[in-house]
Design a protein around this nucleic acid. Structure first.
Lengths: 197, 197
DNA sequence: CGCCAGGTTGAAGCGCTTCAACGTCTGTGG
DNA sequence: CCACAGACGTTGAAGCGCTTCAACCTGGCG
């Protein structure tokens, strides 16, 4: 079982940056499988994020708590993707995000101190870390661009097009929050669109 | 002159990640000084971004052109900061950003192909690249968070607090665009605030 | 002097938010 | 087995702050 999981992780990582057996053997002892029940906190409020979690099974969300304790979703993730509060992880300071399992989740997780070991001894894992940072940046940039240029309705339409599975898997309230609007607004947008289809 | 400029660059880079003389000597032949007149395009529309520009003197902005050809500023930069379309630079594809000099600008610029040379032969420059990506990510994240959580008025107040020099140096229309609002709205926000001070 | 860019101000409108009520579904306990 | 509670989604009404279009003021510059 754990072997299968590691094998699928290896394949995922290989797609980010092809690795040799040596590269893999350097790192594989550091990966650990973790389990979280649905609704369990993967990163509780105010904690420091110690892991990068590669989601093997299940789904999760990361969200902010604003001043009024309202939640605003940053990311909705499923298997094959990874989730972390990268800023907290990088600088080992209390996270501004929370991470919650939306279903029963299995992750393969890499601890900060282990990643640092890899950075010290391996050019490959350094490059890998750089490419992780680049990908996380691109994600964040896409999000910013969406918020800057698109109306809530346009963001909704784009989401349907690019991530239709969101609507199969996540409750609308989480999707609304991800789109940066209230559930009521999302409901009205949907009503408007089906009326004028 | 050029020696002074290189020396100040070396100091800046040293603050990102301390380097040995060997590290510096590996890279210094690759840096080139470039000059741009006020209002000159550093990265014209649709071009591919080939450089990371460290601004030595002057200021610049990066902006998007949306569908209606309206400009939306992403960043306003001054000396000591760097500017690039990092996504375009990374993947060498046409930029979604434009970059324009706001004053006469001198940059020290590093070409993509030269950075790749450095990545190949040096662990230091790999780490440096990773830390650049991390910083660019943090910037982008801050921007996203501002757009998600703060009202235009709150964004304005925060900008005054954190970057008061913007108001000395950049016209209000650029600041409005940077805040994601129209110049009229910014004007009204300012009027509202001075009235109720 | 007259032009133009930058900034302000007015009026109208739109789409979001908020508060509130209500329907529906699901799960749980009497 | 039914009744109720709670979560989720929808709908209505009111309000607010932004945008848009437009007019106008000001200072800098040919």
């Amino acid at each position: 079982m754990i072997d299968q999981i590691m094998e699928s992780l290896k394949e995922s990582l290989n797609q980010v940056l092809p690795m040799t057996d040596k590269n893999w053997n350097e790192a594989s002892p550091y990966f650990q499988a973790l389990h979280f029940a649905s609704n369990e906190m993967i990163l509780p409020e105010g904690a420091t994020c110690e892991f990068i979690h590669f989601i093997h099974k299940g789904s999760a969300r990361s969200y902010y708590l604003d001043m009024d304790l309202k939640e605003v979703n940053l990311l909705l993730c499923r298997e094959g993707e990874f989730i972390t509060d990268y800023e907290s992880f990088l600088y080992q300071k209390p996270a501004s995000l929370c991470i919650e399992a939306l279903e029963n989740v299995t992750t393969i997780s890499l601890h900060k101190k282990d990643l640092e070991q890899l950075y010290k001894k391996s050019l490959y894992w350094n490059q890998f870390g750089r490419m992780m940072a680049e990908r996380i940046f691109i994600n964040s940039k896409r999000r910013t661009e969406n918020m800057l240029f698109l109306t809530p309705e346009e963001r909704y339409l784009k989401l349907i097009e690019q991530h239709p599975h969101f609507f199969q898997r996540f409750p609308l309230k989480h999707i609304a929050s991800y789109l940066g609007i209230t559930p009521q607004s999302l409901s009205r947008i949907r009503a408007r669109l089906t009326k004028s289809n």
